[in-house]
Design a protein around this nucleic acid. Structure first.
Lengths: 274, 274
DNA sequence: GCGAGACTCTCCGGTAAGGGGAGACGCCAC
DNA sequence: GTGGCGTCTCCCCTTACCGGAGAGTCTCGC
């Protein structure tokens, strides 16, 4: 029986490409039965077809060549099985990772009913110039500080003859929420150059993409809104490091009836989905 | 405000390694706000932290850098979402592949009850020398041919004064099953050198790892056994190209009662599991 | 015996997403 | 001015091959 095959024939017999076979030869994973010393031509025996097929099967199952080599060289079933089991658990881990990634991506693209109920919207806001007061404050005194700052801002803007171009707002750094103490800014957008006066300074409120939820009642009671927003953002958007923002649509200046105040809580995100 | 960060600080702020940041710079995916022309030092602005975090999130979800670049450059939600959806479906595909691989590997390692019922075993058989008759036959005449060959073999072995060292058997190439016509060998293992005589030639039956099922009744009715064995091998072993083998444990020479014949059907495999 | 076309050889370079390290230079505090 | 970091560029390494260049080999037909 003619039992030797050229690399091309062996390739067709095993469905491994010629390149792959040469690669396996180089690695010593599957050495041809014989190499012609004059021409360098590889010759494979038909008896090597089974080994080649086993290698191909393991490759289809994603096993690295090094591990395949170990498995094929292992004389006893126990060693073989240990390596196969090790590969299996690696695959299972990868499976879990991929599943989580798929779930995340799906959540990004498909808004759930719960979010619709919570009435969260995504919005792109342009940058704006504003008069602002920035201080590091203890948020236990937050409400009082905020009202004082707002009063000073309104007075300064009016005193400099500037027109307000949108609702007042606030910018809060992360420690404000994690440690109830941190840098906070209250601002009033206005149309002209602000001259520094008292605590008031000009700033430019940066453009941003925001996830927005509206909260009715005193701003200090906005924790439910924050919770809903954070839950939404963590599942359906790409949270982005940046200052949390509030816009005071209806506040002290509009009505003394605190229950009618309306505040927008805004979380910076990278917009995708809906 | 001091808004510029060295690459080290930016790395700590974004949890991207310095190497990774340089790589993204080189690709133009995330360019530092400024590069000192004298020293080459990169400086990042705090405003770039969000972009870096978005990139990191997408990388954690396995998105290729090229696609991240496209997503981040896309001005409208539709384009962003299309690319994210494309990545999602790629991931789902990969998920399916990994799931199938995991299932395959698990099946290799854990024999099922069905296999125990089918009574399949794995066995390693050493090589053996034998007297054999090899011909290309039409399997519609298989039973008759086989009995004739067996008779001639037994006669020749006895005539040459050789001792039989195991049950007679057969080796069948693939076309025998797919086209009912192909090269078949019937052999009787024996302990000495066989002199060619008539159709009889010496061969060495190669060593092999075999999945084995036992079939009771005439060999011609072994299709159920073949089905069970093939099902087993495809799920719980690594089938290997090689000749299918049969061993005739109890046959014509032992009893005329065909129902008491016993045949082992053997499929070459790469042994793993149980 | 010779030429065409198919086959094979080695070597080089490329892939994705960075990691590791060498050697040189910059920055800051003491 | 000096020691200890931080940063720079440049090069090689990883996995499992694929693509191609340029040269040599085999086989078939004439």
């Amino acid at each position: 029986m003619a039992l030797f095959l050229s690399i091309g024939d062996f390739s067709r017999a095993t469905h491994l490409t010629v390149k792959t076979l040469r690669h396996y030869h180089e690695l010593g994973l599957l050495e041809p039965a014989d190499v012609d010393p004059a021409t360098g031509y590889r010759r494979y025996s038909v008896g090597q077809i089974p080994a080649a097929q086993v290698i191909r099967r393991f490759r289809e199952l994603g096993m690295p060549l090094e591990e395949i080599r170990t498995v094929m060289a292992a004389p006893d079933l126990g060693t073989r099985n240990r390596h196969i089991a090790a590969h299996l658990s690696r695959l299972e881990e990868e499976l879990g990772r991929t599943q989580r990634a798929v779930a995340s991506l799906r959540a990004l693209l498909t808004p759930s009913d719960a979010d619709a109920v919570a009435d969260i919207s995504l919005r792109e806001v342009p940058g704006a110039s504003a008069a602002a007061i920035t201080e590091t404050v203890d948020m236990r005194d937050g409400a009082a500080w905020m009202q004082g700052a707002l009063g000073e801002l309104y007075a300064t803007v009016a005193g400099q003859g500037l027109a307000q171009t949108g609702p007042a707002g606030g910018l809060f750094s992360e420690p404000v929420f994690t440690e109830h103490y941190g840098e906070s800014t209250i601002f009033v957008p206005c149309d002209g150059p602000v001259r520094p006066m008292g605590r008031v300074r000009p700033i430019s409120v940066p453009a941003a993409e925001l996830a927005v939820i509206e909260h009715a009642g005193p701003p200090i009671e906005s924790d439910r809104a924050y919770g809903a927003l954070a839950a939404y953002v963590s599942r359906h958007a790409l949270a982005v490091q940046g200052q949390i923002r509030e816009y005071y649509l209806v506040g002290q200046r509009d009505t003394a009836e605190v229950a009618r105040w309306r505040t927008e809580v805004c979380w910076p995100v990278f917009r995708v989905g809906s």
